[in-house]
Computed example of a mutant assay.
Amino acid sequence: MTKIKIALCQMNVIDNKQENILKATSMINEAASFDSDFVVLPEMFNCPYSNEKFIEYAEEEKLSSTLDIISKLAKKNEIYILAGSIPEKENSKIYNTSYLFDRKGKIIAKHRKMHLFDVDVKDGIYFKESDTLTPGNEFNVAETEFSKIGMGICYDVRFPQLAQINVKKGAEILFYPGAFNMTTGPAHWELLFRSRALDNQVFCIGVAPALNEDADYHSYGHSIAVNPWGEVICQLEYGEELKIIEIDLDEIKKVREEIPVLKNKRNDLYEIIEK
């Protein structure tokens, strides 16, 4: 199977975990009704983007009510679900963690955000995830019935080495649930997703929360999908929306034959190596 229906769930995230999970449930069920193969939720889909809230909303993986519900939805609908990310607690540490569920509701991969969002843009945005969160240290490529997929979260997209290593491991789709803001979003969101897709000749997909003007942190929204040619095939606006797209993995082979970037790399001179 080379064609995949992917549902981008740009949901409005509020300061109420139960309501957020109900919204995610509604979008997942709707996506399944359109015969989607793969559903993608935003970064911190059950939690406001706030250091204070990361602590309040954090869940242990084995005791997580959020993950239990997503697992049951994946199994009921026989659908893959990339559960954006949630604040995951392990011992005294909190991680920004994404989980991938297969059609049977089993967790087949997880990714802890490797690069923490610590920025201070003059007259723009200040945020320091490291005040609360701990970075992950593992590259995560998951095997699905369609292809291998590479996992990242938001700020991870700015680091081409992560994408390159995931593609070297065989990933044909790079997923980055993210929550860029109203400073970095207009400046860099589309540019980064087009760059990662173009650099590696893969599909690159980002799903964000909708803009909630009542929240302290304003997400840029604009969930996006880019093809291996670097073309934007879908980009939403600011509001809450479910968008279903179809991609064809055969496009990867076609583009790589036309412009054999990966084949022409000078690995005799330079190489990205995973430690």
Rank of each mutant, 00 (worst) to 15 (best):
Asp120Pro: 00
Ile6Leu: 11
Asn96Leu: 10
Arg194Gln: 15
Leu191Val: 03
Asn91Ala: 05
Gly84Ala: 09
Ile173Asn: 06
Glu30Gly: 02
Ile69Cys: 11
Gly136Ser: 09
Val13Met: 06
Glu274Asp: 15
Gln18His: 01
Ser92Met: 05
Lys169Asn: 15
Asn166Glu: 15
Leu198Arg: 09
Lys75Gly: 02
Ile272Leu: 09
Glu129Lys: 05
His111Gln: 02
Lys265Asn: 09
Thr134Leu: 12
Pro160Glu: 11
Cys9His: 09
Leu236Arg: 01
Gly84Asp: 08
Asn77Arg: 04
Gly170Met: 14
Asp216Val: 03
Tyr176Gln: 10
Thr184Trp: 13
Pro135Trp: 13
Gly150Glu: 14
Pro177Val: 11
Ser64Lys: 07
Arg256Ile: 02
Ile272Asp: 15
Leu262Met: 12
Glu251Cys: 08
Glu271Gln: 14
Lys104Ala: 14
Tyr176Ser: 08
Glu190Trp: 08
Gly185Ser: 13
Glu78Ala: 05
Asn212Gln: 10
Ser36Asn: 02
Glu19Asn: 08
Ala225Cys: 11
Glu145Lys: 14
Ser85Asn: 01
Glu138Ile: 12
Lys62Asn: 05
Glu190Thr: 14
Asn96Gly: 02
Leu211Ser: 04
Glu258Cys: 00
Ile21Gln: 01
Thr25Leu: 06
Lys104Pro: 00
Lys253His: 06
Phe38Val: 02
Leu269His: 03
Tyr49Asn: 13
Phe175Gln: 05
Tyr270Ser: 13
Phe54Leu: 07
Arg112Cys: 01
Lys122Trp: 09
Val13Pro: 03
Ile153His: 07
Arg158His: 13
Lys53Leu: 08
Pro177Ala: 12
His222Ala: 13
Ala24Cys: 13
Leu67Ser: 06
Phe117Ile: 04
Leu262Gly: 08
Tyr99Val: 04
Tyr270Val: 12
Leu41Gln: 04
Pro42Leu: 07
Lys23Met: 10
Glu237Trp: 06
Val141Asn: 12
Glu190Cys: 05
Arg194Ser: 07
Leu269Thr: 00
Leu162Asp: 07
Trp229Met: 04
Leu262Ala: 11
Leu249Asp: 07
Lys254Asp: 08
Tyr99Gly: 04
Lys243Gln: 10
Asn77Asp: 05
Leu198Asp: 09
Glu30Ala: 07
